[in-house]
Design a protein around this nucleic acid. Structure first.
Lengths: 307, 307
DNA sequence: GTGAAAGCGCTAACAT
DNA sequence: ATGTTAGCGCTTTCAC
């Protein structure tokens, strides 16, 4: 509980001098330094981080909104963010959103209240208009491509790799492909269908699209509905693996499956995958958050056939 | 940038009254409320979280020290912590330690500087003496069993499940078992060897113990050294799975493998596992962090043979 | 080289 | 019901 002014009193110097010595900014005589440092040590003095933040007007806190931590996509982005935050001395605060819009707004409010210096959305439910409205309170960075070009973002450019994947599926003579997605309204869905159309030259039926696949268990539960397909394009290797597992347990002939994110599960089953390099996305998103640039940059995804 | 005193000036009320209205604590007339709320809205006023924290002397920040996020053990604990923090309104700050002692001390310093209300160690390199020394600055909770009973902790009681696992391995006629661990000095190591001795009635050789297994890749790299064993007791399903993968690729006869943490990888390969219920450990650890109790509690691990 | 003092923005005990 | 006032603990400008 000893504060800077305690030290000022005890040493006879002013708070200003003590502050200079303790923070290392500004001049102080050799003698002053010694005396102040000595008594600070004696009193087990520790600077109060909150007071410092208040005086500076910044927390060095960066919030990261994650719908789920379990999902590989998000945890990989988080890894990238942590890597850079660690090197730069920022603190990362996890903000679980559960895809809940109200919650996301609460988190934006934290930015407004200056509890956060910046905020990174790995996914979002709030509208872009809302984001734009909150921009004046601090940097808001997205991890997928926004419609609006005035929102800073880093995202995976998935189209080329997705096309390669579909090209390969086509070469395997898959004619009826099922798409496994996390959210019906996810921004990835249009990308996926776009790439599919580019290769297959047809628009997929609505029945081909299955959404709500977040945890591995979801995949296992949904698997029975996938018998009709001869090809599956999944949103992650873990999802893909659990579909595989169901077919395996039922001893049914398996469709050809493509996963994403290059995970262990896919490697074990030798499932082709699309690596969206999420860690790099996370790193870049972090840089944008602290540099306050309004740029949008993309990372190329990669189709990996042989594992 | 508009502050509480701006509103006080504009409405003609004092800062105190404004504070009462805005924070909802204390009395204020209907009229005062309306006027203050109205001008607050007009000015887009937002309370400053830092100032509030300073006045209260607490941040509601809880730090979680994790050597690695990728490792399932730690991420599962984190999930449990997040679940409870979310429900209680605390903010979770991720503190990556990389098993680095100096770093861990830096994090303890954050507790000392009041940047953190409490800190949870999912693993640690710092000595228990150091922990004890820092206890006066705030709650420090461990996620494994400490030697010292004055340190709050929640940990997995692994012995019974480990014994079951070794019993089973023995029944499978495994006579030369390899132990795969993350750290040579991990607290789990003695638990493991203890359970082994209980069942096999012999002390394992040093060559049976392999450490440094953290990422799945580590396991794959180390696998060639494991040919000598007819049984493997791994520190996670992911590690176990990658050992399996190497043997599979080499088309070598596989040892009998037991994993841990009940992960997808182990499920796919139908490897028996020990579920240490890490999520529950995380939940409990969090409760201890905020309740400031000095208790130590344990969660029973579970051996799962059929997957 | 050092200090006085204002400021950061909010809270809470106390008085009215 | 409302205001006064003294904190919370540090930073920083501007004199001396």
């Amino acid at each position: 509980m000893t504060s800077l002014s305690d030290i000022a009193k005890l040493t006879g110097y002013s708070k200003a001098t003590v502050s200079r010595v303790l923070s290392g900014n500004g001049y102080a005589s050799q003698k002053a330094c010694e005396k102040i440092l000595k008594t600070a040590a004696e009193l087990d003095y520790a600077t109060n981080a909150i007071a410092q933040e208040l005086a500076h007007g910044a927390t060095h806190n960066i919030g990261v909104v994650l719908p789920y931590i379990k999902a590989s996509f998000f945890s990989k982005i988080l890894e990238g963010i942590l890597e850079r935050s660690f090197e730069t001395g920022y603190k990362i605060i996890i903000l679980p959103s559960n895809y809940n819009q109200d919650l996301e707004i609460q988190y934006l409010e934290k930015l407004r209240k200056k509890a956060l210096d910046a905020i990174i959305f790995t996914s979002r439910q709030v509208s872009e208009e809302t984001i734009l409205k909150y921009q004046k309170y601090g940097p808001i960075v997205l991890c997928y491509r926004p419609e609006n070009s005035n929102i800073p973002a880093t995202y995976a450019n998935r189209i080329p790799a997705y096309r390669q994947a579909f090209q390969w599926l086509k070469e395997q003579n898959c004619s009826n492909i099922g798409f496994l997605l996390s959210r019906g309204n996810s921004p990835t869905i249009s990308t996926t269908l776009q790439a599919y159309r580019d290769i297959y030259k047809i628009t997929p039926h609505l029945e081909q699209i299955k959404s709500g696949l977040i945890s591995a268990e979801d995949a296992y539960r949904l698997a029975p509905e996938l018998i009709q397909f001869d090809g599956i394009f999944a949103n992650s290797d873990d999802i893909a693996a659990n579909v595989w597992r169901w077919f395996d347990e039922q001893q049914l002939p398996k469709p050809i499956i493509v996963g994403q994110e290059r995970l262990l599960s896919g490697q074990l089953l030798k499932i082709p995958t699309v690596d969206n390099h999420c860690q790099e996305v996370g790193r870049m998103a972090f840089e944008q958050a602290i540099s306050k640039t309004m740029e949008q940059s993309s990372i190329h995804s990669e189709f990996i056939l042989k594992r």
